[in-house]
Design a protein around this nucleic acid. Structure first.
Length: 315
DNA sequence: GCCCAGGTGAAGC
DNA sequence: GCTTCACATGGG
């Protein structure tokens, strides 16, 4: 068993005030007290792709659990379709033990970050399963977030194991395992609309399925080494590796630079200058501190939801 | 029709 | 070394 990371240890020691109950519908529920947690922003900020808004809550799947999440200012309540004796997996996924204020304190005190933090108050990073995160981001390249969601939904429906869900909703499926996907042929995967990404996903699934690549081992490595390892996988370059390092392994220093973040960095920090990707990565590593990846998510979400800063920046 | 999307890998300078 | 291009697919 891998050693617990410090944050997780702190989390397990922490006393979480919560309530457990069976709801009238027969679902199994729990409520957590939270502070500075914008669930909607977090679930729609392009880190996880299986959450859908339905009526008054977010429906999704974590591992083998169908989950409905509802949020108020001070609470997040969760409902599952099967009995849950230990909710640690959800606390971990939502990172409920993390003090956001402590993270934001580490951000650089400059105008772009202040604007992003103000606009996206309560935005969080999730802690996802490495395989699901890796596969999802292999499928993400040059796709809009809506389309990534569609591809992954198809993939889960076609190849994922059925799991118990609220009968009022459409059937739920776990994310398909590497072994299951490794049994596919490329044309089967292409029926999920993933196009040229199909061979990348298939080959990666085969490597994992054959035991030739061990995702669990990366937890023990320094971030640079873990990145090098991930980039050996087909279809995984610097950006996708950084997403997995940040969203699944919790390496807070990983700083994914996609088209949005690239635009943000160039507009905000290098106006009217030509800077290549290597320069941007170097700047990011130096400028954004030990929680750079968290800062990156604020910039990304700010750019996507609010759009232009050109007017703010150009004077 | 055109351009773009949480990119990567290979070919071309 | 760094830059350019093909690669599926769908939305605006």
């Amino acid at each position: 068993m891998r050693p617990l990371r410090p944050l997780r240890e702190a989390l397990l020691r922490r006393t979480v005030f919560n309530l457990t109950a069976e709801t009238p519908s027969g679902l199994h529920a729990k409520t957590f007290v939270v502070r500075d947690y914008d669930l909607a922003a977090t679930l729609t900020s392009g880190q996880a792709f299986r959450w859908r808004w339905h009526d008054d809550g977010w429906i999704g799947v974590i591992g083998n659990n169908w989950v409905r999440l509802r949020a108020t200012e001070s609470y997040i309540s969760a409902e599952c379709a099967q009995p849950i004796s230990d909710w640690t997996w959800l606390i971990e996924y939502l990172q409920l033990g993390l003090s956001l204020a402590e993270v934001i304190k580490t951000f650089p005190d400059d105008e772009p970050m202040r604007a992003a933090v103000t606009a996206c108050r309560g935005l969080r990073l999730l802690r996802q399963n490495p395989w699901e995160c890796l596969a999802s981001f292999i499928l993400s390249s040059t796709k809009q977030i809506v389309q990534i969601q569609q591809i992954i939904a198809l993939l889960c429906e076609r190849f994922g194991e059925p799991i118990p869900s609220d009968p009022a909703f459409s059937p739920a499926f776990a994310f398909p395992s590497p072994t299951r996907l490794a049994r596919c042929v490329e044309s089967e995967l292409r029926t999920c609309k993933m196009g040229f990404r199909a061979p990348y996903l298939l080959e990666t699934a085969k490597l994992l399925s054959r035991g030739e690549f061990d995702l669990d081992r990366l937890f023990e490595l320094p971030v640079e080494t873990a990145r090098e390892e991930l980039m050996k996988l087909p279809g995984v370059g610097r950006k996708i590796a950084d997403c997995v390092l940040l969203f699944a392994y919790g390496f807070q220093a990983a700083f994914p630079v996609d088209v949005w973040v690239m635009k943000a960095l160039r507009q905000l920090y290098f106006p009217n200058r030509k800077v290549n990707m290597q320069r941007l990565h170097r700047f990011a590593a130096e400028h954004f501190g030990i929680c750079g990846g968290y800062a990156q998510q604020y910039l990304f979400h700010y750019m996507r939801t609010k759009g232009k800063f050109e007017t703010r920046n150009s004077k």
